[in-house]
Design a protein around this nucleic acid. Structure first.
Lengths: 333, 333
DNA sequence: TGAAAATATTAAACCGGTTTTGCAATATGG
DNA sequence: CCATATTGCAAAACCGGTTTAATATTTTCA
């Protein structure tokens, strides 16, 4: 319609080669009239770039948590600024399906969430897979092969435990997240390190892992209830998430144990709005999920632009937020 | 490598035409050896189907709320079951950029969030745009052209107001969400309808819209503070969201107004976990966001399969959840 | 003025699949 | 046993762009 060839139209749209102003006008006018837009897929096919980054959840998992929400918001901000789109990968893992049903991924790069030990996403990854950045620490064995962004979980847990020890607590119950998540093990290390450093004994029965596929709130509630019913000695609880802490609160209410009078509660916080509304407001440590998300996205996009950048990782600092659920503990309590 | 033609390999992978078992084996063995997978975008180009659905946010907006989170979880569940992926559209609107930078969308269909009156996404939509389903009510003028999934906002607001009227409240302050959102206007109608039906007078000064781009919590807090300071008469507040309600709580605490003793608070709830932890626990109406998400996704996928399905909309019911923030009001209070 | 350089355009090749067409090999059946 | 279906595969066209190589036009400058 504009009386020019395919290639010229391409040049008008991509602006990679000069086109005479008059011709540009003619082409754009025709494009507007025909409501023409370059086909995304055809362009992708020849450019070999989608400008889409993927967010890969754990296999079989389809629900985002509050932590994920903040993280996604961080990722989105960077995507928006850099002109990328975000694809949530909900497809079942390839190997579960027939090889015949698998295809390449429609993304330039991926952010991998919630790494686990023996995580198939890492094992299946080949040199042709798109570049990836992990949120959280990748499995031990592959530690050095992946870029990752994480909190310094060991240090965070140590700092948290230290905080309670400084308040006078000696028996601290740790309701940890599932063992399969790499972060859980890190936090256990930090927790034990702080106790050890204070010269106290480590009581293995005071450290409990959540089981996969359970409701966190219920886990916090029933475990706390059981531990209290059994008459275990502990004056403080560290909850692996705010939802777990909520369960602790409910169990404490049931059992008429006052917080923080008889029990201090401390949590790794995923959602700051939420936690400030606990009754009493929950003391804990924020994970800066949004910042983790934006760092992960920046790191990934940087690698896409320059694939030769070395494997790096970034640790996002955590901060203790003191509210009202922890109190000084004296021997006489 | 398998000694067969391109077309045969295609048939092995798509299974659209019969291929001899022996040849299938040879091809698959070779594919495995070469780590070959069909290219997603090449396939898309010739099939004209991406099996990706898009989630379109308001222009310029890059943050999801708690309500969105639940909604997305509902969408993801359906996507997972149906073999679709979800793309979050964070690109700036086409028309803001040069026409030269626009392309077709890389999705089969779209879910449009947070419709507003004069929403450019609707105006720009042409017959070549992918099918769309709206979450919330589309702009008045286009009402019949789009499938949408929504709460029955008029009925919800009426039910909520009726609930407070039944408790004896006559002056109910409504802290509504921004006027630009179609839902706000619907709720105002329901609110006024209930008041009118009860035979009470409508006080326009007791209905306030949030301004766009403000913090909801702050809006709730400052507005409540001002209204109380001005000595306005009202015994109950309906908050357009739980975050607004949180602001109301904070203002009430500042001004030493007890909830629910001196003031009943009722909210449209986006997050059920959150609201049960208000102090006192918040009474309100749940929007069933997750269900809205899954219905929207199902509806969209249904339309993709069969484009001739008529334009329909689905109203998701809401339920009042009675907790402790609302109390009977007598004239003598 | 004419040769060299710079600029603008086109035709053709290509990206990596799917789909159509046509032909050979095998199966069916009267 | 031969005509007719049916099945299985290769060759070629196609999806809608980008990119390269070749060509035509204009500009620069000796």
């Amino acid at each position: 319609m504009a009386g020019v060839s395919k290639g010229t139209v391409s040049n008008v749209f991509t602006q990679k080669r000069a086109v005479r102003k008059e011709v540009v006008d003619r082409v754009l006018r025709a494009a507007h009239e025909l409501n023409f837009k370059p086909n995304y897929w055809a362009r992708t096919l020849s450019m070999k770039e989608t400008r889409i980054i993927g967010l890969s959840m754990q296999a079989e998992q389809t629900k985002f948590s509050q932590f994920h929400l903040s993280l996604i918001n961080g990722v989105l901000q960077v995507c928006y600024d850099q002109g990328y789109r975000l694809l949530i990968n909900t497809r079942a893992a390839d190997h579960k399906r027939d090889l015949r049903h698998s295809t390449t991924d429609p993304v330039d790069g991926e952010i991998l969430l919630d790494p686990q030990e023996n995580d198939e996403r890492f094992i299946r990854r080949t040199e042709t897979s798109p570049p990836a950045v992990v949120v959280g620490r990748p499995p031990e064995a592959l530690g050095t092969q992946f870029c990752y962004v994480d909190n310094d979980s060991v240090a965070s847990a140590k700092k948290a435990t230290q905080f309670l020890i400084d308040l006078g607590h000696r028996h601290i119950l740790f309701l940890n997240t599932p063992k399969e998540r790499t972060v859980s093990e890190d936090r256990r290390r930090g927790y034990e390190s702080a106790i050890h450093q204070a010269g106290y004994e480590i009581h293995p029965e005071l450290h409990i892992y959540e089981r996969l596929n359970t409701h966190s709130l219920e886990y916090g509630q029933t475990t706390t209830r059981e531990m209290l019913a059994q008459g275990r000695t502990f004056s403080a609880i560290i909850a692996g998430s705010d939802k777990i802490a909520l369960g602790v609160y409910q169990a404490a209410m049931e059992m008429r144990v006052s917080i923080p009078g008889q029990l201090s509660v401390f949590a790794f916080e995923n959602d700051t709005v939420f936690t400030s509304e606990f009754c009493p407001p929950l003391t804990g440590i924020t994970l800066n999920a949004e910042r983790i998300g934006s760092e992960a996205a920046s790191l990934l996009i940087e690698r896409l632009r320059n694939p030769s950048t070395p494997t790096v990782y970034r640790l996002i600092p955590t901060e203790i937020i003191i509210r009202e659920s922890c109190r000084i503990w004296n021997a006489r309590n």
